[in-house]
C-alpha cells in the first residue's frame, strides 16, 4: 500500500514537471499556432546555468553565495532565450510560404543549445544539492523531498498566475484576442507581434525556472531536457493543447503510469504506457481529453 502511495506521489511530481513544459508549449501555441520544440533544452539550459551559478563544477561544493544568484540567472537566461528563439527561429519561419518551417527551426535550436552546452560546459552528469536539503519528509511512510514540494508550489503559482493574468487583466484578454483572431486583434490596437514575442519569452522563462527546480531531483547534464521535451509534447496532445486543466491531468497520467510500469513491469518499458495513451487519445479524441470544442456562429 505504502509503495503505491510512493509511486503516485513520485509519479505526480514527474507529471507536474511535464505539465509545466507543456504549459510553455500551450502559451506560444495559443498566440501564434507555433510550438517551441526547443523548450526541453531551454529547460536544461536553466538547470545548467542555475548549477554553474550555485555549485563549483570541479569539487561539487557550493560556491557559497545566495540562492538568489541562480534564480536571477535563470530568469535572465529564460528571457534572452525566448527573445532569441522568437527572433531567429520563429519570425523568419513565419515569413516563409512553407507552413511548418518553425517545427524544424525550433528543433534545430534545441539541438544547437544541447551541443553548445556539451562543448562549452561539459558532457558529464552532476549532482545539484537542493537549497532546502536532501532529507525527505515522511508522511505515512511516503517520502517527499522538500525540493519536490517547492516544485509543486512554484508550478502551481506559475500556472494559476498566468491563467488569472489571462482571464482578469486587459493585457491577458488581449493575449486571448490574439489567439482567437490576430487580424481583428490588431484592429483593436493590440500589437500582435509583441504579444507573440511575450508569449515566447514567458514560455522560455517558465522552462528555465523548471530546469532550476528539477535539477536537484535529477542530475544536471546536457541531455536532461531531450526526452522531457518530447514527453511534455505527448502530455499536451493527451490533455489538449489549449486546455490548462488538460495539461495537468495529462501530466499526471503520464507521470504516474511511468512509475507504475517501472515498478511492476520493468523500468525498460517505462516509456511505453505514455505513448500507448497518446496513440489512443489521438485515435479516439484527437483534440485531447480536454480539448476545446469551438462555439462559433457565422
Amino acid at each position: 500500500m505504502n509503495q503505491i502511495f510512493q509511486i503516485i506521489v513520485s509519479g505526480s511530481i514527474q507529471g507536474i514537471i511535464y505539465a509545466l513544459i507543456a504549459f510553455g508549449y500551450n502559451l506560444t501555441f495559443s498566440t501564434s499556432k507555433t510550438i517551441n520544440f526547443s523548450l526541453g533544452n531551454v529547460m536544461m539550459l536553466g538547470g545548467v546555468i542555475g548549477f554553474s551559478l550555485y555549485v563549483d563544477i570541479h569539487s561539487g561544493n557550493l560556491l557559497g553565495h545566495s540562492y538568489l544568484f541562480p534564480i536571477i540567472g535563470v530568469l535572465v537566461a529564460g528571457m534572452i532565450a525566448g527573445t532569441a528563439i522568437h527572433k531567429f527561429a520563429i519570425e523568419p519561419s513565419l515569413k516563409l510560404k512553407s507552413e511548418f518551417t518553425w517545427v524544424l527551426a525550433t528543433l534545430a535550436v534545441g539541438i544547437i543549445i544541447k551541443n553548445a552546452v556539451e562543448q562549452i560546459w561539459s558532457t558529464g552528469d552532476f549532482r545539484f544539492p537542493s537549497p532546502l536539503g536532501d532529507v525527505p519528509f515522511r508522511i505515512f511512510g511516503t517520502g517527499i523531498y522538500p525540493q519536490e514540494i517547492l516544485l509543486v508550489v512554484v508550478a502551481t503559482i506559475i500556472v494559476f498566475g498566468v491563467e488569472s493574468f489571462k482571464k482578469y487583466t486587459i493585457y491577458g484578454k488581449a493575449i486571448q484576442a490574439v489567439s482567437e483572431d490576430k487580424e481583428t486583434a490588431s484592429l483593436m490596437g493590440i500589437p500582435q507581434h509583441q504579444v507573440v514575442r511575450i508569449s515566447f519569452i514567458l514560455s522560455a522563462t517558465i522552462a528555465t525556472i523548471a530546469g532550476l527546480l528539477v535539477a536537484p531531483l535529477t542530475f544536471v547534464s546536457a541531455s536532461m531536457g531531450s526526452s522531457l521535451g518530447i514527453k511534455a509534447y505527448a502530455v499536451s496532445i493527451i490533455g489538449g493543447l489549449e486546455s490548462g486543466k488538460g495539461l495537468v491531468v495529462g501530466g499526471l497520467i503520464l507521470g504516474i503510469s511511468e512509475f507504475f510500469t517501472a515498478r511492476y513491469i520493468s523500468s525498460g518499458y517505462k516509456e511505453l504506457p505514455g505513448f500507448i495513451i497518446l496513440i489512443l487519445v489521438i485515435l479516439i479524441k484527437p483534440n485531447g481529453l480536454f480539448g476545446k470544442t469551438m462555439i462559433k456562429k457565422v
Binding site: 486571448q176 482567437e180 483572431d181 487580424e183 481583428t184 484592429l187 483593436m188 462559433k296 456562429k297 457565422v298
Partner: peptide, 24 residues
C-alpha cells in the same frame, strides 16, 4: 504605420463578417 497604431490615431474598423471574439 502598422494597423494597431492606426487605432491610436482614432481609426476604428468594424470588419466584414463581424469578427467578434467568440470565446470571450
Amino acid at each position: 504605420i502598422p494597423s494597431h497604431k492606426r487605432v491610436s490615431m482614432g481609426l476604428a474598423h468594424c470588419p466584414e463578417a463581424r469578427k467578434i471574439f467568440a470565446q470571450q
